[in-house]
Design a protein around this nucleic acid. Structure first.
Length: 574
RNA sequence: GGUCCGGUAGUGUAGCGGUUAGCAUAUCUGCCUGUCACGCAGAAGGUCGCGGGUUCAAAUCCCGUCCGGACCGCCA
């Protein structure tokens, strides 16, 4: 028999004979009468098998996760036994067939969310049978389709770029692929299609996009995988405003068509410095406010040495905290680079606990500036600016999780962080390095700062898209002027010969007639993660890798044959 | 490389110096004609991650190690 419909579409077949195929989700055997919940990707419906029916013997041997086919009349359930949605109906089976038997599942699928993640990953094909998992991947597919439709309508050209390319020394570690035809030489998997998309602009394609797989051999996190997907795009003859505007329209289109959510127009914007100074992160979670308060001046020259000598003292107002909670927050602050976490508890018009003996004269001003509530806690980090605000930013997020601070706010908060620094000083290597990438264009009015001691203040025409505290996109206007590119390489300490050795083909291309251009890359997996409310990127990737970069199902990575290595001219050390 | 949390039947958990290692669920058997987390009765199922140590005695305490997760470093 041929399947008549997806289970979710059965309503239109009421009182007709239909054939359904799917998996046995549950079997309730009442002795004579058997009920089977049959599931396909679209839904689950109850099948009733009467003892006298021709379907009985076959249904009697069905177990969880057997693949089964039932033919029968679709009817309404007896009154009083109807439930919501598909629970109104049941299929009275006249024929049943086991299409495929199944071993007993290693975990109960309907309890999947409580099962240890490594078990789920090992049996991912079973985990993916769970409706929650299908829904997330379905959402992902819908977002992808909405993106494609929008960009296609806007005249973007979808171009694929190579997976086997050249290793570049900077940035993340490359995944290397040995070349059999060129023994001793290696391809690298792309960290992103950055150079290729710029070359497409040089080639005159004007507008490009691609859902691109990217590879970075770095340590993993809940929101990082070694292979991941970017929505990569690039536009010619544009400035930063053009790129931001198009991306806002695209994002609004996606949220509207897929989630029926209206995002604000325009998105809010804050500068990199402002984001760090107020929220302690270049990707602040703005679903709640909890901004820092500058209090350096109140302690300058005071008797509390840790504060009076610090370049920056920032305060963060919190609710009432126990000593234990404060200790935990201090641990967070220290792990994120702070020397410590000072605190005060407000009692009336003054403070107790923590560093209260140092604040007598400024208590009123502290209360006025921070607005800390009675019994509320003030938390302080002092020291060098970036270290302090970053540490307090981590405390801010810990408070968010502790007090569920996002509960009253919007479900989604999206913003641009702009004016990133062009250059960053790398203490370890004692040299300047780029913050975004070496082809990012600086603000024209900051050009004069190249080569001066103030080059750390050069602003880049770079921007990040931040959704609920996650960086879901980032990009820049690129350098299309050879002189500026030379300045940039010089600032990075590249000699002309070194630049040529690394990027010669690209520099030649730049000199061949390059339009002003810029673009962005979205962290597609992260976007889907936030849109679906998942807490890990692994939840929105069909076959993800674990913390250690292992695919527990396919058991990759794995050793290979000596003969395979020999053919590639490779020896392993151990 | 580091910090923290965890590892006990298939799964989820309790036990935290002396238990026949408990409970739930899944599995198997029997009974059961309106269940829907079906119910009832019974059975089987455990190298308490692994190694070492302390102890008369270790799932329990200590050390090491492996595995899983979160984070720091790292990720242009």
């Amino acid at each position: 028999m041929k399947r008549t419909a997806y289970i979710c579409d059965i309503a239109s077949y009421l009182d007709q004979t239909i054939t359904l195929q799917g998996w046995v989700s549950r079997r309730r055997d009442l002795g004579g009468l058997i009920f089977i919940d049959l599931r396909d990707r679209s839904g689950t419906v109850q099948v009733q098998i009467e003892p006298g029916s021709a379907a009985f013997a076959e249904a009697d041997r069905m177990r969880s996760e057997y693949v089964a086919e039932f033919t029968g009349q679709l009817q309404q359930r007896p009154e009083g036994q109807r439930k919501e949605g598909l629970g109104q109906y049941e299929l009275l089976a006249t024929a049943a067939r086991v299409l495929s038997a199944a071993t007993t599942p290693p975990f109960e699928l309907n309890k999947g969310s409580e099962v240890a993640e490594d078990i789920r990953l090992k049996y991912r094909y079973l985990d993916l049978r769970r409706p929650e998992m299908f829904e997330k991947l379905w959402l992902r597919s819908k977002v992808s389709a909405a993106m494609t439709a929008f960009l296609d309508a806007e005249g973007f050209v979808n171009v694929e770029t190579p997976m086997l390319t050249r290793s570049t020394p900077e940035g993340a570690r490359d995944f290397l692929v040995p070349s059999r035809l060129n023994p001793g030489e290696f391809y690298a998997l792309p960290q992103s299609p950055q150079l290729f998309k710029q070359l497409l602009m040089i080639a005159g394609f004007d507008r490009y996009y691609q859902l691109a797989r990217c590879f970075r051999d770095e340590d993993l996190r809940a929101d990082r995988q070694p292979d991941f997907t970017q929505l990569d795009m690039e536009m010619s003859f544009v400035d930063q405003e053009d790129v931001l505007d198009l991306n806002e329209r695209l994002m609004r289109h996606i949220f509207r068509t897929v989630l029926n959510v209206e995002l604000p127009q325009p998105f809010s914007r804050l500068s990199y410095v402002e984001a760090l100074d107020k929220y302690g992160s270049d990707k602040p979670d703005l679903r709640f406010e909890s901004a820092f308060v500058e209090v350096s001046d109140l302690f300058a020259g005071g008797e509390f040495a840790a504060f009076s000598q610090a370049k920056t003292v920032k305060a963060l107002a919190a609710g009432e905290l126990t000593r234990k909670q404060i200790d935990e927050l201090e641990r967070v602050a220290k792990q994120n680079g702070a020397g410590g976490l000072a605190w005060l508890r407000r009692e009336g018009e003054g403070f107790t606990g923590g560093i209260s003996k140092f604040v007598g004269s400024v208590a009123a001003e502290l209360i006025a500036r921070t607005g800390v509530a009675e019994k509320g806690t003030l938390l302080f980090v002092a020291g060098e600016w970036k270290k302090s605000v970053t540490a307090l930013g981590a405390v801010r997020l810990a408070l968010r999780d502790l007090f569920d601070l996002t509960a009253g706010g919007p479900k989604f908060h999206i913003s641009w962080v702009v004016d990133f620094p062009q250059l960053e000083y790398d203490e370890e290597q004692a040299r300047w390095t780029y913050m975004h990438h070496p082809f990012t264009a600086p603000h024209p009015e900051d050009l004069a700062l190249f080569g001066t001691e103030r080059q750390g203040e050069i602003r880049a025409q770079a921007y990040d898209l931040v959704l609920n505290g996650f960086e879901v996109g980032g990009g820049s206007i690129r350098i299309h002027d050879a002189d500026v590119q030379t300045k940039m390489f010089a600032a990075l300490g590249f000699t002309e010969a070194e630049a040529r050795a690394q990027f010669g083909f690209f520099l030649d291309a730049l000199a061949s007639g390059t339009p002003p251009h810029g673009g962005v890359a979205w962290g597609f997996d992260r976007l889907i993660m936030v849109m679906s409310g998942a807490s890990s990127i692994r939840e929105v990737i069909a076959f993800p890798k674990n913390n250690r970069g292992a695919d527990l199902m396919a058991q990759a990575p794995a050793p290979v044959d000596a003969a395979q290595l020999a053919e590639l001219g490779i020896q392993t050390l151990n």
